[in-house]
Nucleic acid binder design. Structure first.
Length: 105
DNA sequence: GACTTGACTAGAC
DNA sequence: AGTCTAGCCAAGT
C-alpha cells in the first residue's frame, strides 16, 4: 500500500503509469486491482491522476466527478488525451530512465 | 473472520 | 474485435 503511494509520488509531471505496471513494479504482477483500491482511498498529496488503466484510459467509478478532474489535471500537466485516452507510447513513465519532460506544444 | 466488492489485466473464446 | 473468465489482494460488511 504505502509502496504504491511512494511510487506514484515519483511519477514526474507530464507522465502517467498504469495500474498493472505499478503493481508489477511492486512485485505483484496481478495486483492491479490493489493499486486501484489504493487510489480510491488515496491520502492527500498523491498525484493519483497520473495513474490510468492499461489502455491509457481513465477507469474511475465516478465518471462525472473524478473522471473529469483527472482529465483536466492531466491536461494541465501537458498530457494530451486523444479520444479519451492517453497515448501511453508517449507519456508512459519509464522508471530509471532520464526524465524526458513532455511540454505543452 | 469469512464473504463480497472493486480506480485491473491478460488470456481464452 | 467484442465479451467472458480467472487471478490478485485490500477494505468494507
Amino acid at each position: 500500500m504505502a509502496a504504491v503511494y511512494r511510487l506514484v509520488r515519483r511519477i514526474p509531471r507530464g507522465h502517467v503509469l498504469t495500474y498493472g505496471e505499478i503493481a508489477a513494479r511492486l512485485g505483484r504482477p496481478r495486483g492491479a486491482r490493489m493499486v486501484g483500491h489504493a487510489m480510491r482511498v488515496c491520502p492527500p498529496g498523491i498525484p493519483w491522476h497520473r495513474v490510468v488503466n492499461a489502455r491509457g484510459a481513465i477507469s474511475l467509478r465516478a465518471p462525472m466527478s473524478g473522471m473529469v478532474t483527472q482529465r483536466i489535471r492531466l491536461e494541465q500537466e501537458g498530457v494530451a488525451l486523444r479520444a479519451g485516452r492517453v497515448p501511453l507510447k508517449h507519456y508512459r513513465w519509464r522508471t530509471g530512465s532520464v526524465t524526458v519532460i513532455a511540454r505543452n506544444p
